[in-house]
Design a protein around this nucleic acid. Structure first.
Lengths: 294, 294
DNA sequence: GCATAGAATTGAGTAAAACTCATAATTTTA
DNA sequence: TAAAATTATGAGTTTTACTCAATTCTATGC
């Protein structure tokens, strides 16, 4: 293998100008350089590429083959180089987001709608982290940003705080527990608890509220969709623990009531994790900004 | 511009082996060379191409873009290099033949049919040299071989003898001139002469036979097709001067007679001219060989 | 047909790059 | 945590690409 893109560019320019001297000028090299270059190609392929004795330099069949190649390849290369420059400037890129919490969908969807308008060139996707570990996937480059509520020290990942939230117990407006200012674990011993269909250890209401107190709800029911959970709660089929952002509108409608869990409320903070090397990219920073403001 | 085919090959091999060291081995360079190469690419594009901290070396979006380019470009390059090698070995090529004599068609057509079977990869074409000068066209690379009856000394063209011929006067078997052993210019003063539609100076019967003797035929009629000329002659509409190869079968049919022109016959030799640089190519030599044997 | 200007080629010298070697730093794995 | 495997780095070397200057070639006008 010998042929390089440089050769194709020279060949095409010579062909276009019909003359070594002018081609050399356009390529910002001496005409001697071009002459040497062509000669080395001809020696390598053991075939002449140009017919020397004719005024507007003409190509041999071998030369034609290379010109044909140049015409195919050079636009591809230029296109790719442009894309790469835009990738470097952060104008072009990929934003595959992994979320571990189902409820995040509720604020993420509208944020992404706004985001897409600002960054139409960024390829956006959401993956709900059920079947895979989000942070390793981020490290391996399978996804580009992880929404998580527990930051981890890492040399190659960078966590940015998004916003604080509080998980609240949701129940029908006429539920007996509405009378209490704050909910205690034992209050749920006689209730049906509705959760997302993930392992208990990944549900804060179990890991941070019920299990430490050794309380088990009367029943557990699962649903994937936040809106379905709210519907079930509203129709008296159970109660649920959901982050506050989900409940803003639902509460206003007046059919649901919310109460804090535990004496100080079950609060947390959401973070966005990205690879440290890409932390400064404009399109990632902009997403983080939008997510903070929601 | 910076990116070269070498880079694309390295990138793709690294991607395929998932590992600098093995890629280096496959490319017959040191692993250090690859490391430097990638680094220089990353510096040029100001973007990382690989995620370093993951076992099977993974690509960043920028890296993916380049791999995509490599997958498009490398096969094209390899294909073209193969074609070129075959062009150099004379397995692939172009044989555009220019003929100045209309009558040559008669022996050329069957020769080319045989030739095409032997060299299916050679692109064959015939151009009858009416509207252009054949030898300059050969020098300029517009055609690749010229059939001509007068060789010229040239530094960049090479003439090869094909075969000798003799131009004969053709007439109906019952024509009065059949009684003569040889035809003299004055014999044609009362005849209608049928010729190809080209300038008189390019017709030997005028330039070498009639004009030196100052004789003008009673009438001149033209036709492009040899078979039509023979038909006209057979039906008594005139006589024609045609090279012997045209007449072999026609004469055998018994309806036509031929006689030599002038005391020693109007003889000549056909040559094939090619560009000296291509003289040794197998597919040209083979054509010349076939043409000689007819 | 010869002189001449415009181009291309050539060869030598130089600058630049690509590569190797040896070694250090990292990462992975046991 | 040590050993093994892999990658990165820096200095030195080789190779390649280029420039400069001189020469040769080609086309064209007189």
């Amino acid at each position: 293998m010998f042929l390089e893109i440089r050769h194709l560019r020279s060949l095409l320019t010579i062909r276009e100008t019909g003359n070594l001297a002018r081609a050399a000028e356009r390529l910002h090299v001496t005409q001697s350089a071009l002459s040497h270059q062509i000669k080395s190609l001809e020696q390598y392929f053991e075939a002449p590429l140009f017919l020397r004795n004719s005024k507007p330099l003409r190509l041999t069949p071998a030369g034609e083959k290379l010109i044909e190649l140049a015409r195919q390849v050079l636009p591809l290369v230029e296109g790719a180089e442009n894309d790469l420059r835009r990738v470097a400037r952060g104008e072009l890129g990929r934003l595959h987001i992994a979320i571990e919490c189902h409820a995040c969908f509720e604020w993420l969807a509208p944020v992404l709608n706004r985001y897409r308008r600002q960054w139409p060139q960024i390829e956006v996707d959401i993956r709900v982290g059920v079947s895979f570990e989000a942070l390793p996937a981020l490290q391996k480059g399978e996804v580009d940003l992880v929404i998580s509520s527990d930051p981890v020290k890492s040399t190659d990942l960078q966590f940015s705080e998004l916003f604080d939230y509080e998980a609240l117990l949701v129940m029908p407006a006429d539920h007996p527990l509405v009378r209490k200012k704050r909910i205690q674990p034992t209050d749920l011993a006689e209730e049906t608890l509705i959760t997302y269909p993930v392992k208990r250890q990944r549900l804060d209401v179990f890991s941070r509220f019920l299990q430490p107190a050794g309380v088990e709800p009367a029943a557990v029911r699962q649903s994937e969709l936040t809106s379905v959970i709210l519907l079930l709660v509203a129709s008296g089929r159970g109660v649920a623990a959901l982050p506050d952002w989900v409940l803003r509108e639902a509460e206003q409608a007046g059919t649901l009531a919310t109460r804090p869990l535990g004496p100080r409320g079950m609060k947390g903070t959401l973070y966005a994790a990205v690879r440290r090397a890409e932390f400064d990219t404009a399109y990632l920073q902009d997403f983080i900004g939008l997510a903070r403001r929601r």
